[in-house]
Design a binder for these strands. Structure first.
Length: 468
RNA sequence: GGCGUGGUGCCCAAGUGGUCUAAGGGAGUGGUCUGCAAAACCAUUAUUCACCGGUUCGAAUCCGGUCCACGCCUCCA
């Protein structure tokens, strides 16, 4: 089945065709490790997770590279404030980043290159750019990219530099540049940088922000690769600058497909670290929101649409997930070994087809999720009419496990949770109370069991005890 | 000033020329089941898709205009 994606380069949905058969090279802009990731950051990483899982589901092999930006203005500034060496400071937040993506069940990329491990590659690339006339050095020892030497500049963001207000907000300390829109390839050391510097042919300094992505993508994915993703705010100038650097240096197309994830809003306002209106994953977990529910909220809005984050949405997600868990439980409880008359294979096949089709349509997540819900409804009906055999139930669960390869939100309790002896005794006591029609006592016991964190539900096959 | 996105039921959210009297989820209401609950199921909540015009046999979907919201052009997922 075809896999279509919306390519920012031409603003059109088109079929995704990798350079090498079914092997996909993806570069994703990763975190700047100067603080905990906020849920806006995580939405982007979540989009990239769904993307890689969806591509795998469609039979592609993935090599995903995600950079860790561990040297730029903010990391230097904040490590200084913390009074820690840069490396020690960023290390903490690298660790936190991996904890967060594990919590959200985000699959690991194949490579996580850190900027500070690739200074040599960056210097080499800058030398090539200077040699080809795209880079120039200023008196202070910085190197800039001359965008007027690169006629395609602006092709991704559809920006014509002639019409920009760029002159209005120029920092006074950047007067050395030939043109105010030129961006730094190498930044000369200043006092604020402290002991953060590397030696280069232009003296002590550190790389510009954009150059790391060009250098590292080239190293791990080649001069031209399939897919580059990131937040929409990275489109300009970051990605535009990457294209300029890479294509100027290599004389080749940098990337075939670009995908950009929209913002996450909180109370309909853009969320960003500089505005300070952000929630980290840890904030949400402290409010006792399940990671699965957070994941569900973050994936269930299409990546090209703004996602307005609310706590109500988290509650809705929790409820929706509960419904699936109830269904899994009922399926696991089936003991009916009789061959059923229903054609479960056909039902499951239809659901998988719908799921796959929607997923391959530029990650139409609403349709994808719709297929999962529709199957749930059908299965529940069959469960009500007692027409599912043990064998069918297994097939249904297998199908949901398939869905889960992409969605990553379901928990399949293969092992039965041990109900404590005490709870079992209370439930038994309640049963005998019920038999004696002492419902007051029965209800009392049910409440008591609930206070202990368990729930008793009466089913046609007797009571069922569930962990709340 | 230039560029861009979106406005679909109580909330979230698909659909982008006919199968749409608009998928799906959450919430509410009524019912089935139950001693009562819970779960599940059934029914119900937009003759309508911001507004006004136009194109068309036919539009939520295309075109023009208006209003509203948000964003980029500056570090930012």
């Amino acid at each position: 089945m075809a896999f279509k994606i919306y390519n920012t380069l031409n603003r059109k949905k088109e079929e995704f065709i990798p350079i090498n058969d079914n092997e996909v090279g993806i570069y994703t802009c990763g975190p700047t490790v100067y603080n905990f990731a906020h849920i806006g950051n995580l939405r982007s990483f979540m989009f990239e997770d769904i993307l890689r899982r969806a591509l795998k589901f469609h039979g592609f092999k993935i090599k995903q590279v995600m950079n860790l930006t561990d040297v730029e203005d903010k990391t230097i500034r904040d490590s200084k404030i913390a009074g820690e060496p840069l490396k020690q400071y960023t290390e903490k937040f690298k660790k936190a980043f991996f904890e967060d993506i594990d919590t959200l069940n985000i699959e690991r990329a194949e490579v996580y290159p850190a900027a500070t491990d690739h200074i040599k590659e960056m210097i080499k690339l800058i030398q090539i750019l200077i040699a080809k006339g795209f880079g120039y050095q200023t008196e202070d020892g910085s190197v800039y990219f001359a965008i007027n030497k690169f006629p395609d500049y602006g092709k991704l963001a559809k920006i014509d530099m002639k019409n920009q207000r760029i002159g209005e907000r120029v920092k006074s300390d950047e007067y050395e540049k030939d043109s105010v829109a030129d961006f730094a390839l190498w930044k000369a050391w200043t006092e604020e940088d402290g002991d953060v510097y590397w030696d280069s042919p232009w003296g002590r300094g550190r790389p510009g922000w954009h150059i790391e992505c060009s250098a590292m993508s080239m190293k791990y994915l080649g001069k031209t690769f399939d897919l580059h993703t990131g937040g929409i705010d990275n489109m300009f100038p970051h990605h535009e600058d990457e294209i300029a650097q890479s294509e100027a240096a290599n004389g080749k197309t940098f990337v075939n497909y670009w995908m950009h994830c929209e913002y996450l809003l909180v109370d309909n306002k853009k969320m960003s670290k500089s505005l300070g209106n952000f929630y980290t994953l840890r904030d949400l977990l402290n409010k006792n929101i399940m990671p699965e529910a957070i994941r569900w909220v973050l994936i269930s809005t299409h990546y090209r649409k703004k996602l307005n984050f609310t706590f109500k949405a988290c509650e809705q997600a929790t409820e929706a997930l509960k419904g699936f868990n109830n269904m899994f439980m009922r399926l696991n409880d089936i003991t009916n070994t009789k061959q059923s008359s229903i054609n479960i294979e056909a039902i499951l096949k239809g659901a998988i087809e719908e799921f796959t089709k929607c997923l391959g349509d530029d990650l139409n997540i609403s349709g994808t999720i719709g297929a999962v819900f529709n199957l749930q409804k059908e299965v529940n009906k069959l469960l009500d009419s007692n027409s599912i055999s043990v064998e069918d139930a297994q097939k249904i669960i297998e199908t949901y496990k398939k869905f889960n390869k992409v969605l990553g939100v379901f928990k399949f309790k293969d092992k039965k949770i041990e109900v404590p002896e005490k709870i079992i005794r209370m439930a038994e006591e309640r049963q005998s109370a019920r038999k004696n029609k002492d419902f007051a006592k029965a209800d009392e016991l049910r409440d008591e069991i609930k206070e202990n964190g368990w729930q008793v539900e009466d089913t046609p096959d007797g009571p069922r005890i569930i962990k709340i």
